[in-house]
Design a protein around this nucleic acid. Sequence first.
DNA 1: TGATAACCTGAAAG
DNA 2: ACTTTCAGGTTAT
Length: 407
Amino acid sequence: MAVRAAEWHKLPIALTELCINTTLRCGQSFRWRKSAEDEYSMALHGRILSFRQDATHLHYRAIFPSSLPTPPPSNAPSVVSDDDTLALVQHYLNLEPSLVQLYEKWAFADSNFKKRAPKFTGIRILRQDPWEALIGFICSSNNNISRISGMVHNLCKHYGPLIGHIGDEPYHDFPTPEALADPKVEAHLKELGFGYRAKYIAKTAQIVAADKSLAWLEELCNPESPVFGQEPKPAGELELGGREGYRKAHDELLALHGVGPKVADCVCLMGLGWSESVPVDTHVWQIAQRDYKFGKGKHSSLTAATYTAVANRFRELWGKEAGWAHSVLFTADLKAFSERVAAKTEVKEEVITVKKEEEDGTEKTEDVKKIETVKRKRVKKEVDEPEQQVVEVKEEVLTRSKRRRAR
DNA sequence: TGATAACCTGAAAG
DNA sequence: ACTTTCAGGTTAT
């Protein structure tokens, strides 16, 4: 019992290999919440998992439902050997590939990547639960990260099992297909503000629960990168359109209601471990036009053919982990991170003449050079981040009080 | 195959 | 205060 209690553990890792502050907030997973300053938490595999990070280590903690504040029996064995949290963390964060090496490879092949990546290091593709990824990205259509996060949170709150609390905050795991297949779900989700996505979610859940199965979905995984607890197997050679298993997974997902090419690619990349999958959304389409010469002639608009051409081009350029590289440029394009690109440090400089009435009736004049440094994060609550605004005001007195006669 | 409209919502921008 | 646009798209015609 004592071992299962909420204790922090640490894992040595450089920020260039993993940056949770970017990776957990860049629109891959919609379920991480800020549980304290510099701390992210989420229910996963029957426990609440929390992360912190410093320059040299990732710190993690698991809170299990059973870890109540009951004293352990006096002569109970003090070691529990079945705590798989370390293995779960390594699996979920996909820590195997060397990100630094991959960045070097992409930078060598692509000058635009080389230019944009330095401010966005440590972005890693997570290995999320396929079912959660599927429903999460169905929610993402024509939507923003803040609202998607709220919707996914509502799904968990109303249909997912309660795992535990941090403070007063309850943490629920993601609901099963069966839970979301209930006939009342669609109407309820509409009340909760899901809009037209309510029908997509309900239909998809009903089909997966009744006709297909979770096993069906999990079998679409990249065998090199299976769900937690399964042994990896080889997945074949990369082709321009992606490996065969990737194309099969993409095809099968397209049959689901509310799943188009972009959502299918998100599920392939972030839920099924197909690293060559390149979701082409509005951002990526903008990037393709701005930096990769798309948007003219044959590919002047984002049709199905253009979609494939863009994805193929990026696979050609970046190789087997094209989806990982794509995620770096995607994040660099997000408004929530725009202050890094612009290094938004406005420096206002103005000289102000301050007049003060002295008690003795004289007037004191100071010319003050006021330097304001304003740093602001423009987008509010993408996760739960309060708008941070640092205003430093330095005043340099240029001219010492010149005394004048009172009138 | 390629265009176009319709689809929910809510915060930001004008 | 009010209208339009935008947000990690998909479906139907």
